[in-house]
Nucleic acid binder design. Structure first.
Length: 743
DNA sequence: CGGCAGTACTG
DNA sequence: CAGTAC
DNA sequence: GCCG
């Protein structure tokens, strides 16, 4: 939720829901309006940026200095536009046409928010208030519809709810999502069967299916009815005729029997026994966002019911939805203009200096461009759509970054951060954390910072840091730095360089009088070392080093044959920074899994592999061995080196055993980078999912009697491939080497 | 004012 | 449980 | 230390 995270994620993953854009968006439009309108560059489209803007720059040069720097806002804009085209495109009409009142307790606002977001993201309209004339469905997340809930709807009994409004429980939503997944896995299966170049997108995307396609068949509805007795045994004309579980014929059955012709075919209306009560615009089944939704909800927007505890929230939700459904909102246009204006200004200021070394905003576009929403055709050549064979190794050229105008600030604050990082205690910890985040933004800030006010505009920079920045800029140094650079820090740093030694241990040793590694080695002052620490100390120098990726490859190549001999079907992959294509790696991470189609698993293989690698003098030390080595999901930490190689350094190595079915989620998780993962998790959360190394989950299920207890984490809806998770989250596919957010 | 990820291994 | 690492 |  932190702003920095949003930046980090939006800049690269293109994956935040539009709601997350809200704040910067509003801010930018508010503060920049005047300038933009006058700038004269407001009508350029993004396609025209780059070359043409550079030329145009000269004539527009005499324009007023901006009051703020729209640096990051320019990026927000690009992201926002992209956002709209993407997340909307993937999951928009799962619930298209449904006007839902969500009946839910509000003791867990986060949960409420997730659920509402989930509905909205998937195309439903969510009512601020229950109004029978507008509502098509009620979905409740509560175990029972007791009076305390019904008062929210201003009714005393469910009998007052018109019969045409079906009342489903939340599992209905989960089921719809599961149907989506089921359909997707079929497609992936087909894809696998057919080999490659199978156009998944055409089949997979919900918008290519009729609305309502993923709605469960009617005979399953009773499972999801919140009060089955109310629904009775209606004249639904339930089609009892045989229907296999194939999603493909769902729509057919429904059309044939459930839906009356008028509301029918395309309409997902689940109320076949009543005319669509809401608006005529819904009856045609075309999900016309914005238009049809305005009618039923407009009254509420001007008058928030103070007695409804959710009113304010719904209001917000509505705003979010409106934003999402209205790509051409004036706001977006305005921001678009700001983006253009900003690019222009860059060109003027830098005088073509950026021509040779890709300037930061260009680089930003490289990563953003992903699916080529609409951008400079010039750059297009570099990326082949959907084709692999990406040369990660030569991609980011880490040294080629443009000079940082605030390098002194970055250096000084980095040093300060280092001091905090080494000291014990929460204060220091979070201070360091904070600096780390703001430093990322400062590094990318393309201007020499001139004032406190300007500094504070950089996300992650607050009062304190802004003052420090100005002190550095004005005086060239930071008094606080000397103040914090107490004499202990160097020793603390030294000690913490030992694997297995953190702040607490280091401080203790220092307090006991230790000052050197020799002291530690000799156990002076009562120092006792853990097993890990002994090893860490023994290879202190080696473990400070990073290794060239060639060495990771070499180690991997040496290891794989051992695994193959244990079980030819074992699959190993080098993960982490290696998979991201980094030139040097801090350690080597190897994922181990195995297809289960023959009933076997990789259980036990890791134990055997470790044994063999030890015997082969590849593994040299164990640092952390899982409780249960036969657990299909466990992590091993150790040291290794290239055998029979004089001078070979000791390297950190991790083995990650992963169940076959969660290999996709694990790939994402263990590939990182860290910031990228957070962005993915964040977006998942904002869409009502949750993501971890095991999979993507939907619809957290809570204990029926005590809602605070989570019966489980929801249903796994994806985990086998990275692609499906990206797809569901509406994140454009990115090669591992593109998932780099931390420079 | 509380959150800032969440989990597994060690001793 | 605290400490550490990922 | 920043953010909401």
């Amino acid at each position: 939720m932190a702003l920095e995270e949003r930046i980090a994620s939006h800049r690269t993953s293109g994956s935040l829901s539009s709601k997350t854009m809200k704040r910067p968006t509003d801010k930018a439009s508010k503060e920049k309006t005047d300038d933009v309108v006058k700038s004269g560059a407001t009508t350029k489209t993004s396609k025209q940026r780059g070359e043409s803007s550079r030329k145009a720059a000269a004539s527009i040069q005499p324009k007023p200095e901006p009051k703020i720097e729209p640096t990051t806002y320019a990026q927000y804009v690009k992201q926002a536009r992209k956002e709209q085209s993407q997340s909307a495109a993937t999951t928009q009409n799962l619930f298209a046409g449904m006007i839902i009142y969500l009946l839910i307790a509000d003791d867990d606002m986060e949960d409420v928010r997730c659920k509402v977001d989930c509905l909205i993201v998937h195309g439903a309209k969510v009512l601020l208030y229950y109004r029978p004339e507008a509502c098509t469905h009620i979905i409740t997340a509560e175990p029972s519809l007791d009076p305390s809930l019904l008062v929210r709807m201003r009714i005393d009994s469910v009998d007052e709810i018109p019969k045409h409004i079906k009342i489903f429980n939340w599992n209905f939503v989960v089921s719809v999502l599961n149907n989506l997944i089921a359909a997707e896995s079929q497609i992936y299966a087909k894809k696998a069967a057919q080999g490659r170049n199978y156009n998944v997108a055409d089949e997979i995307l919900p918008e290519n299916r009729p609305p309502g396609y993923f709605i469960p068949p009617q005979e399953l509805w009773p499972e999801y009815f919140a009060c089955p007795e109310r629904e009775g045994s209606p004249k639904l004309g339930i089609d009892v005729h045989q229907r296999n579980s194939q999603t493909a014929d769902m729509i057919d059955s429904k059309e044939a029997t459930a839906s009356p012709p008028h509301a029918a075919a395309a309409s997902p209306s689940l109320s076949p026994d009543a005319p669509n009560p809401g608006s005529a615009s819904d009856a045609n089944g075309v999900p016309t966002p914005g238009s049809s939704s305005d009618t039923p909800e407009k009254p509420a927007s001007t008058n928030i019911d103070p007695s409804d505890p959710l009113a304010e929230f719904y209001e917000q939700a509505k705003k979010d939805r409106v934003k999402e459904n209205a790509p051409a909102a004036p706001n977006a246009q305005l921001l678009n203009d700001i983006a253009n204006w900003w690019d222009l200004k860059q060109d003027v200021g830098k005088e073509g200096k950026e021509e040779k070394e890709g300037a930061w905003w260009d680089r930003a576009e490289e990563t953003e461009d992903e699916d080529g929403v609409e951008d400079s055709p010039v750059k297009k050549g570099k990326k082949k759509r959907g084709k692999r064979g990406f040369t990660c190794d030569i991609k980011p050229a880490p040294g080629a970054r443009g000079p940082c105008p605030n390098q002194d600030v970055v250096d000084t604050l980095t040093e300060l951060m280092g001091l905090h990082k080494v000291k014990p205690g929460d204060d220091h910890h979070w201070r360091a954390f904070s600096y780390q985040k703001s430093l990322k933004a400062i590094r990318d800030y393309p201007h020499r910072i001139r004032s406190v006010k300007e500094a504070k505009k950089i996300p992650g920079v607050g009062e304190k840091t802004a003052d420090k920045i100005m002190e550095i800029i004005h005086t060239g140094n930071l008094r606080r730095l000397h103040h914090e650079h107490t004499e202990d820090v160097d020793v603390l740093r030294l000690f913490q360089g030992i694997y297995g030694v953190g702040q607490a241990t280091a401080v203790n040793w220092y307090a006991w009088g230790c000052r050197t590694l020799e002291d530690i080695k000799e156990g002076k002052h009562g120092v006792k070392l853990t097993t890990c620490q002994k090893i860490g100390l023994k290879y202190y120098d080696d473990l400070q080093l990073r290794m060239p990726r060639e060495e990771v490859q070499a180690l991997f190549d040496v290891i794989v044959p051992y695994a193959r001999r244990i079980d030819p079907k074992l699959e190993l992959r080098a993960m982490g920074s290696f998979r991201r294509g980094k030139k040097d790696c801090g350690d080597i991470d190897i994922m181990i899994t195995r297809p289960t189609d023959d009933g076997e698993t990789h259980a036990g293989a890791l134990r055997e592999l470790l044994l063999k690698l030890h015997r082969a003098d590849i593994l040299t030390e164990d640092l952390a061995v899982p409780d249960d080595l036969d657990d299909p999901e466990c992590v091993y930490h150790g040291l290794c080196h290239l055998p029979k190689t004089p001078g070979a350094k000791q390297r950190r190595i991790d083995f990650l055993a992963v169940p076959w079915k969660s290999r996709g989620a694990a790939l994402i998780y263990y590939t990182g980078d860290d910031i990228f993962n957070r962005a993915m998790r964040y977006k998942a959360g904002s869409m009502g999912y949750s993501l971890n190394q095991k999979g993507l989950y939907a619809g957290v299920v809570r204990d029926v009697h005590d809602r605070r207890i989570k019966t489980n984490r929801g249903n796994i809806i994806a985990s086998e491939t990275e692609e499906e998770i990206f797809k569901i989250l509406g994140v454009p596919w990115q090669e591992p080497c593109e998932r780099v957010r931390n420079h």
